[in-house]
Nucleic acid binder design. Structure first.
Length: 769
DNA sequence: TTATAGAATTTTTTT
DNA sequence: AATTCTATAA
């Protein structure tokens, strides 16, 4: 055993060692929460490089989130120094984007393709539907989510299976088809395409796949329980069964992305897919005190269909969990802030090792306010808020057009931003003409006089606009860094200028955001320059002639690389925040750990989310199982202190709701909270007049679940109401034709007759008539 | 064409 | 509650 080897195996337990040392063939590491899996992955990579002398560029390590990828990279830099530069460590999506860019020509794209986000996607769907005259048929959003599902399942439009009588399915397929055509015409892809197009390219052109197989001899996947079928298909292509060196690490109890197509069966069936795979279980938890671990176990054990395992720990029992009962969400925020300050003062826990979790983003606002009032420093860890601001998205749209003028979605976004007198009618005429000619909008704009029915002012304005885009495009061709492109774009488009001229507080903040955007580009350029220097100064190993060992993103032009970072990475890593409490959703919390964790909104309807609550057997459904796993993830983030908080009433989405305590709380034995049975909070009783103050054990008669009710004449749709006569404030009297959904937002389609015709309205707004 | 007001609609979680 | 859509006036 040489020095490297012993250093790398230092303080690993026997199964961890086994996982690091395994060589030759597939390996499944089942790693419970806090069992040191990141350590295992990084040590293993280092071991391959240092002891087995595997070239770093032969190793591909993928994760799901940017945060995880970055963290893994950092640790590998610590272990391997500059050798770590040649490793490919990234998320599925950015690895796929890099490969797809190199192979773009094979799939009908050019290297400068742009990546559409869900807003762009929705616009494309809407336009495709309008073009095909299918507007009334289905909600664009529903169609889009069906399309995404298909993509997650690795199915192109032609692979979609539709039952003969399934009209909606046929419709989805039709729109999916048109949607794909539009994306290709715009030289654009969506998130799903990044993976799907690559998988189908590899299917069609084995020789292209072969290049990557020859290169990547070692593939590692973190959070494998969250892979969806496309991702798994890609893995199987790159590291084919039965004998490839594929290492997958995951925990079926932490699978929380089913809604994105993730399939827990991928991990459960891995040994069948890769017969002979070695299986290692990591069951010792090093993170949480035992009270926390026990509570987490009591929650997760309610799930059937899980690999049987129980984490153990030789850590002390530690403090009990703490239950926080609050009157409403404001008090919850205030109490959280108070406890945080107390912990910092008396518990000697740093702000930076505390976190507040919530189920839905909408909860963050009040929590922020509470922390701000109490002067608790915090950072909101929200995926990509900065790049989601309207003005920043406008700026990105211009940048994308600079790189890829064919991108119709981007062009439509900014054609009249800032206002340049090109209105809806003109735009409609231009798009109609573009559709009939099968040309991109940019192309049509180069000869606007050909568009029928345009007046001369419109033609002139379009020509000016085209001139602007053209000169920006030309500028981008010659530029060598992102910042100068952004700078040029901001100047030429007068985006900042117009905002400043407006003079309102709001427009000033927006202008400020655009300056910050320029700052982000400058920072990007600096990082890139530094990386280039590091790569150049590095001695290159012998590379066999038939293998392409270049970094995957080797010759992506800077502006394009910057745009890719915006699309795929967001600004999550902007400020991790030294000395600040972290605020995030439970999903964002996966993979992290903190000394003290506050889990808020433990109420049925909030967490578990109301959508998991409905259905036949809400306690057994897959959705509820996923909520439960989410709860498990939340609990197991905590090292020493876990605070669980709920509010008796909370206004969420504009309505006041009285939610019963979360069912997950009932699963935790009261002793773990340091309380006895009789102090367990009861579900609150119904309240007729909301603002009245009351305590938890007030009792006033029969329990009515008011959580969903709203004052109205038809507050819910129940039974068959078709044919019923109804009156609408605006549309008058009509008859119900069809219903959609139940509860407060149930919709019905009503035939109003006369000029009004069919309308879909919320049942709440109708009166029997 | 633009600005504005009022109405409708929306909301889980993220790459 | 906040955002997005639609109708109407300017």
């Amino acid at each position: 055993m040489n020095a490297h080897e012993s250093a790398l195996l230092e303080d690993l337990n026997p199964p961890q060692r086994e996982a690091v040392l395994h060589i030759g063939g597939p390996l499944l590491v089942l790693s419970g929460a806090g069992s040191g899996k990141t350590r295992v992955i990084t040590r293993r990579v280092a071991y391959l490089v240092k002891v087995h002398e595997v070239f770093p560029w032969r190793i591909l390590a993928v994760t799901f989130t940017n945060k995880a990828a970055r963290e893994m990279r950092e640790r590998l830099v610590q272990l391997l120094g500059r050798q770590a530069n040649d490793l490919v460590v990234s998320t599925f999506h950015s690895a796929a984007a890099m490969i797809l860019r190199r192979e773009a020509e094979h799939v009908g794209l050019t290297r400068s393709f742009v990546i559409y986000d869900d807003g762009d996607q929705l616009n494309v769907v809407k336009r495709a539907m309008r073009e095909a005259g299918l507007e009334q048929s289905m909600q664009p959003r529903d169609i889009l989510s069906r399309i995404d599902q298909e993509k997650n399942a690795a199915r192109l439009p032609e692979d979609m299976e539709v039952e003969p009588g399934d009209e909606r399915g046929m419709l989805v397929r039709k729109v999916y088809h048109a949607y794909q055509e539009r994306l290709r015409a715009a030289n654009a892809v969506d998130f799903g395409d990044l993976l799907l197009l690559l998988v189908s390219l590899f299917r069609k052109r084995p020789e292209v796949l072969e290049n990557y197989r020859r290169r990547f001899h070692h593939v590692l996947v973190d959070e494998f329980q969250d892979t969806n079928p496309v991702q798994y298909a890609l893995l199987k292509q790159l590291a084919p069964p039965p004998s490839a060196n594929l290492v997958v690490v995951g925990d079926d109890d932490q699978s929380i992305y089913r809604w994105r197509g993730a399939d827990v069966d991928n991990i459960l069936n891995f040994p069948r897919q890769y017969p002979g795979a070695k299986v290692v279980k990591l069951e010792q938890n090093y993170r949480s005190d035992r009270n926390i671990l026990d509570a987490a176990y009591e929650v997760i054990r309610k799930n059937t269909r899980r690999m049987d395992k129980k984490l153990w720990s030789d850590r002390p029992a530690g403090q009990t969990l703490q239950l926080m009962l609050n009157r409403d969400e404001r008090m919850e925020a205030q109490e959280v802030a108070r406890q945080i300050l107390a912990l910092q003062r008396e518990g000697f826990i740093k702000f930076s090792s505390m976190a507040v979790f919530y189920r839905v983003n909408a909860q963050s606002r009040v929590l922020e306010e509470g922390l701000r009032l109490a002067r608790v420093p915090y950072t909101l860890v929200s995926g990509r808020s900065f790049y989601d601001r309207a003005e920043v998205r406008d700026a990105s749209a211009y940048l994308r057009l600079m790189v890829n003028p064919r991108s119709d979605a981007d062009l439509l976004r900014i054609i009249n931003t800032p206002a340049r007198g090109i209105g809806d009618t003109t735009v409609e005429r231009v798009t109609d003409y573009a559709n009939t000619q099968a040309k991109s909008l940019y192309e049509v704009l180069s000869e606007p006089e050909r568009v029928p029915a345009l007046n001369s002012t419109a033609v002139k304005r379009l020509r000016t606009f085209h001139g602007l885009l053209k000169s920006l495009h030309d500028f981008a061709q010659g530029t060598t860094d992102a910042a100068s492109a952004v700078d040029e774009m901001l100047r030429e488009t007068k985006l900042v200028e117009t905002l400043v001229a407006e003079g309102s507080d709001e427009s000033n903040t927006r202008a400020e955001n655009l300056r910050e955007f320029l700052g982000a580009a400058q920072e990007f350029d600096l990082n890139r320059a530094a990386a280039a220097v590091a790569a150049a100064s590095q001695p290159r190993e012998e590379v066999p002639p038939e293998v392409d060992a270049a970094p995957l993103s080797a010759d992506t032009p800077p502006l394009q690389a910057f745009l890719e970072q915006i699309s795929l990475v967001g600004d999550a890593d902007a400020e991790v925040g030294e000395g600040r409490v972290a605020l995030m959703t439970l999903h964002a919390a996966k993979g992290l750990e903190f000394d003290a964790v506050f889990l808020t909104g433990l109420e049925d309807g909030v967490f578990p989310h109301s959508r998991a609550l409905k259905g036949e057997d809400p306690d057994n459904g897959e959705e509820m199982a996923e909520e439960r796993r989410l709860c498990y993830v939340g609990f197991t983030r905590a090292r020493k202190r876990l605070f669980v908080s709920l509010a008796q009433c909370r206004s969420l989405f504009g309505e006041l709701r009285y939610n019963p305590p979360s069912r997950f709380l009932r699963d935790v034995p009261p002793a773990l909270f340091g309380i006895s049975e009789q102090d367990v909070p009861e579900p609150p009783r119904a309240v007729a007049t909301p603002p009245r103050k009351r305590t938890w054990d007030d009792d006033d008669g029969p329990r009515i679940d008011r959580s969903y009710s709203q004052a109205s004449d038809m507050e819910s749709v129940s039974g068959d109401v078709r044919g019923m006569r109804v009156r609408h404030e605006q549309f008058g009297v009509g008859r119900i034709v069809a219903t959609d959904g139940t509860g407060p937002n149930a919709k019905v389609t009503v035939e109003f007759g006369g000029a009004v015709g069919l309308k879909r309205v919320i049942a709440r707004f109708l009166m029997p008539g």
